[in-house]
């Protein structure tokens, strides 16, 4: 039984050319204790997917045009804002790329985490402070007792992200949604944060959706991977499978375009650029850049199962590997 089950999610944005889909017909499953990585480049719709699940998109310019997000027996796509507020930060923890957006610069970090505990877990103030201290210790903030009354700007980027993580896990959420949580950090700090997230997941049995553009990070942290391109999932598979046997030409292209420090390989750039949200996409969105393009690619391919838990949205790749 999965913790979160997204099916047919379609999110549209208002552009000068009318409503255009940024996310089309996305299906996702995340179980307890499992990490699903959503990987894609800018404009792939990976962050919009996360914001749609959390219902954090601006109401004036975006709308969920279809699909459902079942989480703990409720459909998040159709909950009202009050009910969502009780879920966000309590049942679903959130960590974003820029920790400052999650922190209030005029409040001490102790008070901010404490407030979450008071509001969502109904703790008395004194107890909340003790729990805050425990949480800060848990995320390995150095000398937490001395720093609990400091303001966010007094911390480095890595430390701020630890504070945000402490806040995200304060209510022992069932699901953690992390959108590029290490992208703004240096690699040595990134490695620490990834490890911390893994530990916390193991301790609390959380499900985790980890959104990133970095395939290296995916290989480090994911159990399952969904690759997105132009608003759609083009391939999904368990992590070992997708790196050992990438099927979609886009997934293969990404792997060949990424320079590695552990071995020398010839870089093979993907020609062209990601289509803009204003373009009308006919057939396979990747076809204009695809080395395997065939006549049939003017029809949109379905996400075909090609093995155990492995699915690919490509006429050519799906045919080569019979299901």
């Amino acid at each position: 039984m999965s913790l979160l089950s997204v099916s047919g999610l379609t999110t549209e944005f208002r552009t000068d050319a009318g409503w255009r889909a940024a996310v089309r017909d996305v299906d996702l499953e995340v179980g307890a204790n499992e990490t699903l990585a959503i990987v894609g480049e800018s404009g792939s719709g990976k962050s919009v997917t996360a914001l749609s699940i959390l219902r954090l998109l601006p109401e004036a310019g975006a709308r969920i045009a279809g699909g459902s997000c079942l989480f703990e027996g409720r459909d998040l796509a159709h909950l009202d804002e009050t009910a969502m507020q009780a879920i966000r930060g309590a049942r679903i923890g959130m960590v974003f790329q820029e920790p400052m957006t999650a922190l209030n610069p005029t409040m001490t970090i102790g008070n901010q985490i404490g407030e979450v505990l008071v509001r969502h877990r109904g703790m008395p103030r004194a107890e909340a402070r003790a729990e805050t201290l425990r949480l800060l210790e848990r995320v390995r903030l150095p000398s937490p007792a001395r720093r609990i009354d400091d303001y966010p700007h007094q911390f480095s980027g890595g430390m701020r992200q630890r504070v945000v993580i402490a806040m995200a896990i304060a209510c022992r959420p069932a699901l953690l949604l992390a959108d590029e949580p290490t992208t703004a950090l240096d690699v040595t700090i990134q490695a620490q944060i990834l490890r911390l997230l893994k530990e916390l997941q193991r301790e609390n049995g959380m499900g985790m959706i980890f959104i990133t553009h970095n395939l290296g990070v995916v290989a480090q942290i994911a159990d399952r991977v969904a690759v997105m391109y132009a608003g759609r999932i083009v391939e999904s598979a368990p992590v070992d499978e997708i790196f050992a046997r990438p099927l979609h030409p886009y997934t293969r292209g990404l792997l060949q375009a990424m320079p590695r420090h552990d071995r020398m390989q010839d870089l093979e750039p993907i020609p062209g650029a990601v289509p803009s949200i204003r373009e009308t996409i006919v057939g396979c969105a990747f076809a204009p850049r695809c080395p395997l393009r065939i006549a049939r690619c003017v029809e949109a391919p379905p996400l075909d199962a090609v093995g155990e838990n492995h699915a690919v949205r490509c006429w050519v790749a799906a045919e080569k590997v019979p299901a």
């Binding site: 690699v187 490695a191 490890r195 290296g216 290989a219 480090q220 994911a222 070992d240």
Partner: peptide, 14 residues
């Protein structure tokens, strides 16, 4: 060691 590589077999636990 901290720079991740796209290979799950090369996972490092710092």
């Amino acid at each position: 060691d901290s720079s991740p590589v796209p290979d799950p077999a090369a996972r490092r636990d710092l």
